[in-house]
Structures are given as C-alpha cells and as structure tokens.
C-alpha cells in the first residue's frame, strides 16, 4: 500500500517560538526545542517525524514563514 510521508524543515533563526504550528499540527509532529536560537527563542522542531503527513497546516498558520514542507509517496 502506498504511504504518504511528510517532513518539515524549520528556519531556526527566523522562528519566534509562538507555538502556533504545534497547535495546528493534526498529528502531533511538532514540539518546542529546549535550546534557543540566537534571538533567545525556543524554536519549533519535529518531535515525531514519523507522524508527519506533509499536510502543510503548520506552514499555513506560521506567522513568520519559517516552515518548508516536503511530501513524498512511498510504495511499501
């Protein structure tokens, strides 16, 4: 069965740690990193990448356009 897998890449330096992407993710992929970027913000990161479907919700609500979303179909 074919499976859609997604992934996101966060522009860490531009992330302001607002957590809206965490709230928007329907599959609980995203969490906040304990580390901070050079501005002092805890930035978003993929905590559970295996759950990501590449639905783009996180990128759509991101106020700082820091999320790039990838999606690929895998034939298992």
């Amino acid at each position: 069965m074919a499976k859609i897998k997604g992934a996101i890449v966060i522009d860490i330096e531009r992330c302001k740690g607002c957590e809206l992407c965490v709230d928007a993710c329907p599959t609980d992929v995203i969490g906040m990193e304990k580390k901070v970027n050079s501005k002092g913000y805890h930035y978003a990161a993929m905590e559970h990448p295996e759950n990501c479907t590449g639905c783009v919700n996180c990128a759509l609500v991101c106020p700082d356009a820091v999320i790039t979303v990838y999606r690929k179909k895998f034939e298992d």
Binding site: K5, G6, A7, G54, V69, K72
Partner: peptide
Amino acid sequence: IIREENIVFK
C-alpha cells in the same frame, strides 16, 4: 523526503 523535488510549501 527532504529533497527539492518534494517541496509542497515554502
């Protein structure tokens, strides 16, 4: 997955 050709949003 994280390859140029798989970008769906940037």
